[in-house]
Amino acid sequence: MSNVSVKVLLFATFRKKYGSKELTIECDGTLKGLIESASRILGGEFYSDVYNSERGMVRDDLIFTVNGRNIKDLKGDIELKDGDVVAIFPPLAGGINSSKLIEV
């Protein structure tokens, strides 16, 4: 997989914590690779804030979008392209891993 350049937008508490709203990241095109590359700039804690190493996936309690589409709604492996925009919201509004808050 060749390297791609992706714009990463941070929101809410992540902005204050990492002192950045927007950064451009070069990575291998995978989500894991993107988060690893961003962690080299923002610090190791970013990795654990965003990635669940045990499950090998982006943390379930974030809103994590690629070009506005939540990755939970995208089918198959996600391959980032040059110029893609990734938005990351901390776990403040959703995805709390409780599937039956409302008993359907």
Binding site: I63, N70, K72, D73, A93, G94, G95, I96, S98, S99, K100, L101, I102
Partner: peptide, 10 residues
């Protein structure tokens, strides 16, 4: 959008 109680495709 928020994924509560579960995420569905908007």
């Amino acid at each position: 959008i928020l994924g509560i109680p579960e995420k569905i495709d908007p």
